[in-house]
Amino acid sequence: MNLIRKSFHFTSTTTHISQVLAKKAKARTIIVKLLSTAGTGFFYTTRRPRTTPKLSFMKFDPRANQNVLFNEAKINRPN
């Protein structure tokens, strides 16, 4: 009976190994913010592959009521 109990005993190294193996890989695509260069503060969000350079598009800014250049900006996320 004693042998059966010992065989099912988990040590702290077993849980440590499972925590190391559970790491997630980085996503292939990231969410980016396209910010208007007109200075209105209007932005679009889109996804792009991690390997491509920064995006810039001519898109419609409803606050400026015209097509303006939108450049990729950093998304400010709270911690």
Rank of each mutant, 00 (worst) to 15 (best):
P78I: 12
I31S: 06
S56M: 11
R63Q: 13
M1V: 06
P62V: 09
F57E: 03
P78N: 07
N71D: 10
K59T: 02
L69Q: 04
H9L: 15
Q66W: 05
L21C: 13
A64P: 10
Y44D: 14
K6N: 15
T37A: 02
P62M: 10
F42H: 11
K33T: 03
K33A: 10
P53G: 08
F60T: 09
I75A: 05
L21G: 13
K33H: 02
T40V: 00
T13E: 12
M58W: 02
R50W: 07
F70L: 05
K23A: 15
R47A: 12
N76E: 13
M1A: 11
R77F: 05
I17D: 04
N71I: 15
K74G: 10
N65W: 01
N76S: 11
P62G: 09
Q19V: 03
F8L: 12
F8G: 12
P53A: 09
F8N: 11
R28H: 08
T13L: 14
F60N: 00
P53E: 11
M58N: 12
F70Q: 03
M58G: 05
A25I: 01
F57I: 02
L69D: 00
T45A: 06
T52Q: 11
L34T: 00
D61H: 00
R5S: 14
F57K: 08
T14R: 03
F57M: 04
F70S: 01
R5T: 10
A22D: 14
S12C: 03
R50Q: 08
P49V: 04
M1D: 06
F43N: 10
Q19M: 05
I75Y: 01
R63K: 15
S36R: 07
A38Y: 01
R5M: 11
R28Y: 02
F10M: 14
P78R: 02
F57L: 11
K26V: 08
R77C: 01
T45F: 09
T46V: 12
S56F: 02
P62F: 08
N67S: 14
N2P: 06
P62I: 06
G41Q: 01
N67V: 14
V32Y: 09
I4H: 04
I4D: 10
A64K: 01
H16L: 15
T40F: 08
M58F: 12
R5N: 13
F43V: 07
T11H: 04
N67I: 14
N79Q: 09
H9T: 12
T46Q: 09
T46I: 04
F8Y: 03
K74P: 04
N79D: 09
S7V: 07
A25C: 08
H9P: 03
T29Y: 08
I30V: 13
T37R: 04
A22T: 01
I17Q: 07
S36N: 06
N71P: 06
N67A: 05
